[in-house]
Structures are given as structure tokens and as C-alpha cells.
Design a protein around this nucleic acid. Structure first.
Lengths: 257, 257
DNA sequence: GACCCGATGCTGGCCGGACCAGTATCCCTT
DNA sequence: AAGGGATACTGGTCCGGCCAGCATCGGGTC
């Protein structure tokens, strides 16, 4: 007979698992309310400290939220892509992944998102993308350019494309890794001497990409997306990092850059 | 003047943030030890219950681990891709993403991983991949086929390719989404009538993919990877799901399947 | 001298009770 | 009918305590 290693299972973990289970099976759905802590300590027959520990990890994993004083009790949350962002950020900061890997991953995700967006090119999605493009152009033509604001809008533009891809996993991973990358690039834009030129070029690139998506140019959209992003970050890369990324975004040369 | 919304920050959250900060800045590195709970409650001047809640969320996010009785205190963990798996699994179960999206995402990730693996084709990585291929073939030729074991080894084969890609983000996302998908496909393989045929075909496909990676056939490796995976799951998809995925894995027809 | 073994002082796990600052509700006042 | 408090809750935090398990070290045995 074969034994299985014993699994230490703390009391609070059992509570977490039971509630996670409830969410997984659909028994608990987003918006549902859990009993208050005092009630839970009775149903699980544990102390309040234990149910609180369970609530803390459920809150940390984005499953529930609670407010003091709310007699309806903790609420079950809908899934949010933000829960992916934390782990991905950690991965970069804790040497789980280098900047080159991060950027490479983003090229893959956002390139694919652009491709899928070009396949679908649904009207509602295109409107969203165009709105984002107009927002970028408007800001680029302004007298004084706020780097942080431009970064936010550029982020929103990519966000719109990912949404148009129709794949929420791409959407979540893209925004997560995008958030991690902007943390690296933000300072660059702030200290940029020729800020106007760079901003204008980014806005133009965005418009060109949007056009490719609109016309259903799948391959072109993918190439434009990857090369746009690569060019945006190229200056802050070391030679080694560039060498690692060139093969992936063969797009760069294809567009004559 | 513009006000910023107040942010309720609980005591335990401050502890979590401080320790997360320490890990982010490199002040705390994997393997380092934190003071025991009784010491922490003094340095943060909070009660033990509060530091315990903080430790629970740090544990839930995979940052630290602790064992009762260990006088060295909680240990800081290295990053592990597994922390991504939880959120991704939740995403599928909580209608954050459909099966089709999940599979599409995997086609992108594992396709790209195969492509990158073919670019590098480092000898050490190839050895790992070949070992996995041999493991599959050996199992496919066995008298009695254990479906669970075959699933595990197939998983290991893809794992080896992702590792060979040199991108730990692809590796992490791939294994996470792979884990989520096998949960769906495992039962299928167990009830499969013509199990032997399917297993043999999968083993052969894996060998062909490995060969393309070895010879540096980048495009071929990517096509083989995506079409292998797609074919593996095709039977459990609905017509709608197939229609959504066909455009992405144009690979299927290219290989004459 | 080498080895075994138990006492001891630590660790985290869990409990019960308590107090506080908020919030929602209901009932009473105007 | 509208306003405004008392009230009964909520979660947030603290305290002090007990327990089981791990490490270490010292005292014993062979």
C-alpha cells in the first residue's frame, strides 16, 4: 500500500477552502453576502480570531470584501484582473523575471491582442479604440504635456485593444504586465528632453495601429503593436536585452524603423 | 486644491506593506528569516492577533512560510509560478474567462514558448525535452496505460519546452493555464474508449515537435505546438468554441490534420 | 568517549473575552 | 412627512492564556 504525505491543514485554511469551494461550484456568486464574523464562528465552531484570519486571506486573494458596520456582512466579489497584477509585479522585483522577459511577454500578449482585435473588428470596440486614439492626439498637441497623464492614456489605448481581443486572459495579463512595465518607463518619459517628439510619435503609432485593426489587417496589426511597444522601450534597454528581443519583434525592421 | 480620497489602512495592512516593501527593494531576500510573532508584535507595537493576520496574507500571497516550533522564525520564499495558478483557475470558474479563452491563451503562450525554444535550442534544454518525449513514448507502449500518469508526463513535456523558452513569465503563465485546463480534460482521457490511439498520437506529436525545436525550425515548432494542443482538446469543445479558435490556430490545416 | 534521551524554552495555532469606532436602522420627535 | 438621535449591530484591535510541536542542551547510560 502507498501512503500519502500528511497535509497539515490549519483551521483557518479549512474555512478558506470551504468558502473557495462555494465560489468555485457557483453556490456563492458575486454579490452574495456571507454571514458576519460572529455568525461564522458559530457555524465553523472556531474562535473569531480564526475566522478573521480566514477572511483576511480571502480578502487578500480578492474573493471577498467587508466593511465595518455593514449588517449585511462580507460581500463576495466578482473576479478582477487586478489580482494577477500583484504576482506578476512580484515576479519582476524578486528576480523571478528580468526586464527583457517582461517586455518580451508583453510583446507576445499585446501583439496577439491586436491580431485578435483585427479579426473581430467589432464596431463597438473600434469606437472605444478610436476614442483612446483621439485622447492621445489631443494630448500630444497640447501646449504643456503631462507625462503621467500621457502614460495613463497610452495605457488606456492598449487596454481598449485588449478588450477588443475578446480574451479576458490576454486582457488581464496584458494590463498586469503593462502596469509592471510602466513603473519602469514612467521616469524615463519625465526626464525626456525631447518629450514632444516622442509623444507625437507614440500618438501617430497608435493611430496607425488602430487603422490596421479597423481594416482587419491582422498581420499588420500584430506587427504594428509589437513594434510600437518595442520602440517605446528600446532606449531604456541594454544591448544584451535588445539582442534577446530582436528575434521576436522581427516586426521592427519590417516596418522600416 | 484637489483632495485625494482617504484610504483606510488597517494595522495589519501596514505590516504587510512594510514586509512586501522589504522584499521588493531586495532588503529581504529569499531564505531570509523574519523575527517571530512575539518579536514582531513589539517592533510594530501591535497585538499578536494583528501580526498573525499580516502573516496569513503574506503566506497566502506566497511571500513567507512558517512552521510551528522553528526558532529561526518565518522564512521568506522565492517567487514561485504557482501563485499565478490560483487566480487563473478562479478566473475560469467564476466566469472571468471561458474555456475557449483559456485554450486560446494557452495556444498563444505555448506556441510562443515553442518558437523561442526553437530559436535558442540550447543543448541542455533539448536534453530535458527529449527525456520527456522518451517518457511519453515509453508510457504509450506500456500494456496498461494510466491516464493520470500520462497527463502528468504530458504536462512535464510542455513544461520542459516553456523552460527552454527562457522566459519565466511564459513558463509561469503556461503552467498555470495548463493546470487549469487539465482539470477540464483529465476526465475525458479517463473515459476515452480508444485510449491507446489517442495516447500514441499525442506521444508522436510530442516527438515531432521536439524535432522541430532541435532543428531550429521556429515557425514549424510554433505551428506544431499550437496544433498539437488544439487537437488534444478539440473533442471536448462545442461548435461555437471551435469556431472561435480556428482562426488562431490556422496551424491545424497547415499540417494537414 | 560516544550515544541516547528527557527537560526546557522556544515556536506558531487557537481560544475566549473585551473594548472601540464606525454604520444602518428604526423609532421618536418636530 | 421629514428630521434627528438612540440603538444594535458591524468589523478592527487588543489582551492574556493554553496547547502541541520542534531544538537544543545537559545529564545520564553503555
Amino acid at each position: 500500500m502507498d501512503f500519502t504525505p500528511v497535509r497539515r491543514v490549519n483551521a483557518y485554511e479549512q474555512i478558506v477552502e470551504q468558502i473557495e469551494q462555494g465560489v468555485a461550484t457557483g453556490e456563492l456568486r458575486a454579490g452574495d453576502r456571507l454571514p458576519g464574523e460572529r455568525r461564522l464562528m458559530e457555524t465553523f465552531s472556531v474562535s473569531r480570531a480564526t475566522v478573521r484570519e480566514a477572511m483576511r486571506v480571502l480578502h487578500a486573494t480578492g474573493l471577498v470584501d467587508s466593511r465595518p458596520g455593514d449588517p449585511r456582512g462580507p460581500v463576495v466579489l466578482p473576479f478582477s484582473p487586478e489580482v494577477l497584477e500583484g504576482p506578476l509585479l512580484r515576479m519582476t522585483r524578486q528576480e523571478g523575471a528580468s526586464r527583457a522577459e517582461l517586455l518580451q511577454f508583453r510583446l507576445v500578449v499585446d501583439g496577439q491582442a491586436a491580431l485578435l482585435a483585427a479579426i473581430h473588428h467589432r464596431e463597438a470596440d473600434l469606437d472605444q479604440i478610436d476614442a483612446a486614439v483621439r485622447g492621445l492626439a489631443e494630448l500630444a498637441d497640447a501646449e504643456e504635456i503631462d507625462p503621467a497623464e500621457f502614460g495613463t492614456r497610452l495605457q488606456g489605448f492598449h487596454e481598449a485593444i485588449r478588450r477588443a481581443s475578446g480574451n479576458r486572459l490576454l486582457e488581464a495579463c496584458g494590463s498586469a504586465v503593462g502596469g509592471a512595465l510602466t513603473e519602469l518607463a514612467q521616469r524615463r518619459l519625465e526626464t525626456e528632453v525631447n518629450r514632444g517628439l516622442r509623444v507625437h510619435r507614440s500618438a501617430d503609432d497608435a493611430a496607425a495601429l488602430a487603422e490596421r485593426i479597423r481594416t482587419g489587417d491582422t498581420a499588420g496589426a500584430q506587427l504594428a503593436a509589437t513594434s510600437n511597444i518595442y520602440r517605446y522601450y528600446r532606449d531604456i534597454l541594454t544591448d544584451d536585452e535588445r539582442a534577446a528581443l530582436e528575434p521576436m519583434s522581427g516586426a521592427v525592421s519590417d516596418l522600416g524603423l
